[in-house]
Amino acid sequence: MKAFIGLVAPLALLGCATSNAQTTTDAAQSVEQQVAQVVAPMVETSTRPASYLAAPEPLQKWVDGRAGTGAPVHWIAEGGVYEYPSGKKMFGMIGFDSSTVIWPEEEGGEIIHLTRKTFAYTDPDTGEVLTEYNGNKVAPIAYPYQMITYRLENDRIYGDVEQGVGDKVRIIKADEGIPFEKVGDTYVYNAAVFLDIDLPTGGKYEAWENYDFFFHPEGSLEEPHQMAWQRYGALPSWAGGQPGIVRLLSWRVESHDQFPEEILKWAKESQPNWLKPPASVEEVRTLQKGEGGPGWGD
């Protein structure tokens, strides 16, 4: 406990200087709480796999912030879709992803992030989830899974994304990586994605997406994990297919109880299987074979 004396001694001395017994008791309890706050993270870290303990801090912070430490975490998103170049708001948008992480036991093994994500378009005025627009059916954007493998090279985070089903399973290799910097005590990670994918139809899927993640020190804010996302590209065919801008603000929550009420209601009614991430790589492999399983949806 010698390492903690400098942190708790002033509180202990302050408690002993008063003649009020209750104040002394309260101070002692405060000392215990301070010690617990310092000890708990160290105990948790000491039980982490060797691969985690050997990872550089920027990689630890990225994976911990984005995917949690094992228990499922959820990223809530709210924003809008704008016509380009007029800037007119066409739709609102809500959604979330559910994530977990698998750190390998051995150093140098693959760090695997398992996630599902789903988003819905909403009426720009009422906020009601859209199921129809100008006579066209509107379905949520829904990924039954994404499996992301992380590594740190040349001061950048690389995440190769595996997704799809059947003969459409593909791996999107991270060629550029995610640069990061510290602004004060905050880690800022920037992921700019330039998509140029050949489609089975012979066409192309082209878009630009930009993610800015802000991971503040634990305890500094009520929710220290935040993200801003923008996308420029063609809108869905049901919306006209013209160029558009999507902008979302996102933050992490630790349980369903912390979801905004309207998003949780929509999720429970329409996308209940997305409220948890894939349980394992084996589940992902089942989904890839087109055999369904938890999270595949209706």
Rank of each mutant, 00 (worst) to 15 (best):
Y133L: 05
I245H: 10
G65A: 09
V183F: 13
Q34A: 14
A120G: 04
W75D: 11
N210V: 12
F4C: 02
L13Q: 15
V193C: 00
T115D: 10
P49Q: 00
D212E: 14
E132P: 03
V8M: 04
L11S: 15
I171N: 11
L59P: 02
E78Q: 13
K265Y: 09
G127L: 02
T186Y: 08
N210R: 13
P224R: 07
E269N: 07
S51I: 06
T122F: 02
K2F: 13
W274L: 10
P140S: 03
V281M: 07
V35Q: 06
D26P: 09
A27S: 15
T47C: 04
I112G: 00
L53P: 05
L249K: 14
V31W: 00
V101L: 04
R66P: 02
A50Q: 12
I172C: 00
K61H: 12
W103C: 01
S51C: 11
G95R: 00
H256E: 12
R252I: 05
V63W: 02
Y133G: 03
T24Y: 04
E222C: 00
A27C: 08
K289P: 05
A77L: 01
E57Y: 10
L195W: 10
P124D: 04
V129K: 01
E282Q: 08
T186M: 12
I178M: 13
I197V: 13
I148K: 06
P294T: 07
S250N: 10
A9L: 15
T45D: 13
G177N: 04
M90I: 06
T23W: 08
H256T: 05
W103R: 00
S86L: 07
P272R: 01
E110Q: 14
K289M: 11
S255Y: 03
A71C: 05
E176D: 15
R247C: 04
P224C: 03
S250C: 14
V246F: 06
V161N: 11
A207M: 04
D160Y: 09
N190S: 12
A28I: 07
E153V: 01
P58T: 00
A267Q: 05
G295D: 06
Y145T: 07
D160R: 03
W62P: 01
D64M: 02
P49M: 00
V43S: 06
S280G: 04
G87M: 13
W238K: 00
R252C: 07
G233E: 10
V281R: 10
P72Y: 08
P140C: 01
V73G: 02
W62A: 04
K168N: 12
I5P: 05
A71G: 06
